[in-house]
Design a protein around this nucleic acid. Structure first.
Lengths: 231, 231
DNA sequence: TATATGGAACTTGTATACAAGTCGCGAGGA
DNA sequence: TCCTCGCGACTTGTATACAAGTTCCATATA
């Protein structure tokens, strides 16, 4: 349902592997064995197995008994459905928020937006910028869900969103123009909320969420082996 | 993300325990130890641990390291959010369905509705009726999601829905009037889809989903120890 | 040559012993 | 009497040996 911190060892393995999978250092389809991973971390198979199970439940690994464990292929149909859920839920949640938001919390949003502004202005490598901005991007959306009192909805979406995160990394990680567009969207979304402009808000959210998915599709064919049933 | 069939042993334990939890044979808050469970099933702790982890990721168990494992308390706030997600997503999915549904699949829906009719007419114990009808109820909703081509959305919802299933069992499991209302809703929902009556469809879905949650609230106080932070 | 067969080398699944926390109760002392 | 300390009985966490299934290739056989 939602990620929970475990006993330390297995949690650390989980975090590390998830990071490697999302950053495509462990590419989709590649094999990963319990015993090798255990050796790398200098621990036994048991906590590795726990981490594998967690990653499997997030759809990032595929465990085939007695055959092997593999990084799951990117399923574009599934990602499409995930974005659909985000679109529909976020439109609903933010619409509710306009009707009931606590103005005293506005500083929190402005703080996040300011941080994003500085990240974009700062001179840093695309890789560094990409990672930092995506984290802040998630912060922004999380803050809005919390303001609306819908933390459960957020954590639910978070548990399925890693599939999309991986794909987004693949498409346009660190692309300054893309990140700039996202930042602009964030500002306009917040503006719509304060102005209670429902229709424009719904439009913005749809575009914001699907941005980066529908563009750059040609990149997919550079690594067709990463994807599931492309045809 | 979504339930996957494991190697048999751990899967069987998972299924059995989940059933017991959902039917409140293992009441919320009760302790359940790995070693005892392993003894009952006459297996070792390892597959039991796997099953526990799966149930934990569904939010049905709470594992506290070195202390014990407990059946999670029912979180009414979380259930409220789950129903909110179902409401919003189902309204969107079924609205899409009206615009594109394949009429040749209608027989499938009618078959399910006919089965529900027969279940309600048949003389059977409330317990038996309840279990059979709830299964068919899920079939109905699943079929609609499939017709709309949104299987992924359905399986995501399914992974969080068990929380609500447990609560529904607690409130009005086998209540003939309640089940009859659900059946009536199903018929009206399908009618709205064929007639493309969006507004009425949205209304029906809202009522249908929240039915049984907002009624019978007095029952909650018969077992306050089952719930999380009631005050 | 083509085919069947068996075994080696890998994988994950399972059992089990032990490590390491947590909690509570009771003995001992102030 | 009340407090403190420590031991013991629990829990889950970890390591490890072994079981069992899959794959593949070499070898024996028709």
């Amino acid at each position: 349902m939602y990620t929970k911190k475990r006993t330390g060892t297995s949690e650390a393995v989980y975090q590390k592997l998830k990071e490697q999978i999302l950053h495509l250092e462990l590419p989709p389809g590649s094999a990963i064995s319990e015993i090798d991973t255990a050796a790398e971390f200098e621990i036994s198979r048991t906590p590795v197995r726990d981490a594998f199970r967690m990653l499997e439940s997030e759809g990032l690994l595929e465990i085939r008994p007695h055959i092997g464990t593999f990084v799951s292929l990117i399923d574009l149909h599934m990602i499409s459905d995930i974005l659909y859920m985000r679109e529909v839920l976020e439109q609903a949640v933010l619409k509710d928020l306009t009707a009931s938001y606590d103005k005293s919390q506005e500083f929190r949003i402005r703080l996040i937006l300011q941080k994003q502004r500085e990240l974009l202005d700062r001179e840093s490598s695309p890789d560094e910028l990409g990672r930092a901005f995506i984290i802040s991007d998630n912060e922004f959306h999380c803050a809005l869900y919390e303001l609306a009192g819908k933390q459960t909805v957020m954590s639910f979406l978070g548990s399925v969103n890693s599939q999309y995160e991986r794909f987004r990394t693949f498409l346009n990680f660190g692309d300054h123009d893309y990140l700039m567009r996202l930042y602009g969207d964030h500002n306009r979304i917040w503006e719509c909320i304060t102005k209670k402009d429902y229709d424009e808000l719904a439009n913005l959210i749809s575009h914001h969420i699907y941005d980066g998915f529908n563009s750059n599709t040609e990149v997919v064919y550079k690594h067709p082996e990463y994807f599931k049933a492309l045809n």
